[in-house]
Design a protein around this nucleic acid. Structure first.
Length: 297
DNA sequence: GTACTAAGCGGATTTACGTCA
DNA sequence: TTTGACGTAAATCCGCTTAGT
């Protein structure tokens, strides 16, 4: 489907090409350009994903999309997921995970780092602390759901880091946690929530954009309907031809392009794509030259 | 009462590893 | 001894939800 309105600058393309799915078939891509938008916007319809049992883990090939949809090219992703090879972080960590580069650390238990201080598994500690284990039951009961408010500095650093990459590998997470004096689990949670917020915001923006496009197209449709109505009236009016002193056309010809000349004596109407409010059709003389606009009432 | 957000929970996915035929 | 299938554990992610500020 293609709809183009040059005058109003709306370009909406919904073709098979743009109606593309990611590798798991759960995304609808829609290219929309509008004067309201700084540039052509590539939409991903979030509710399309909602119908899928797989609500996430898409490797979005659309690098032009906002950050939330950039997971496919996230530098922290493993080459397999990120679609490119040679992730430095991963090499540093010596790990490769589907979701973050960690997991080989997770999978290769024998290769896991041990906390030199306690001699315990670092990741298990992290997990434990994150889940509240490692804290006595009393403390747990006392501190349960005790809302921690991150300081402004902590939030700033987290935001800056998130801008660089929306996911962290374990090494980065640990470093960040140490730097901020937080538990790795807290950093992990913050990033998860931050990704969720970004996605929500993007979804809202996409909805708003589609709403505007829908409104514009509805208005365009109304306008075209009015013009069709006017043309029908015009066609049936004998006054029109008498005033213009031209032979009445046998049919109303819709020219495929405003640049093309229709059959001699026919009322030539440009394609809908070239129509403007106040557009007036013209009459073609026998030599094929337009004789000028015909007043419409 | 509402908005924001840290945190919990459960399910899905992927990887590494162990076992067994 | 090697190999492929299978099951399990672990880690992370996301979506949804809860609860504190």
């Amino acid at each position: 489907m293609m709809v183009a309105e040059k005058g109003e600058g709306i370009g909406l393309s919904l073709s098979l090409a743009s109606f593309s799915e990611d590798h798991q078939g759960r995304s609808l891509n829609l290219n929309i350009s509008s004067p309201d938008l700084p540039k052509s916007h590539h939409l991903k319809l979030p509710w399309f994903n909602a119908f899928s049992p797989f609500g996430h883990r898409s490797s979005d090939p659309c690098s032009g999309a906002p950050q939330v949809f950039l997971r496919g090219i996230d530098v922290n992703r493993s080459p397999k997921e990120a679609g490119h090879e040679g992730d430095d972080d991963e090499e540093e960590a010596g790990i490769s995970s589907p979701n973050s580069t960690i997991s080989s650390a997770s999978g290769k238990r024998s290769e896991r780092e041990l906390d030199p201080a306690s001699g315990t598994d670092e990741h298990e500690n992290e997990r434990a602390s994150s889940r509240g284990a490692g804290i006595s039951d009393e403390e747990d009961a006392e501190n349960s759901r005790k809302k921690l408010r991150l300081s402004k500095d902590q939030s700033t650093v987290l935001e800056e880091t998130f801008r660089e990459h929306s996911t962290l590998n374990p090494k980065q997470k640990l470093a960040l946690a140490n730097r901020l004096g937080l538990r790795p689990r807290q950093v992990e949670v913050w990033f998860q929530n931050r990704r969720a917020r970004t996605k929500l915001k993007q979804t809202e923006m996409d909805c708003e954009l589609l709403k505007r496009c829908c409104e514009n197209l509805t208005e365009e449709n109304r306008r075209l309907q009015r013009e069709v109505q006017q043309l029908r009236v015009l066609k049936l009016s004998p006054h029109f031809y008498m005033q213009q002193q031209v032979a009445p056309p046998t049919t109303l010809t819709l020219c495929p392009s405003c640049e093309r000349v229709g059959p001699t004596g026919c009322l030539v109407v440009p394609a809908a794509s070239a129509m403007r409010p106040g557009f007036k059709p013209w009459v073609v003389k026998s030599d094929g030259i337009r004789s000028g606009h015909v007043a419409m009432k």
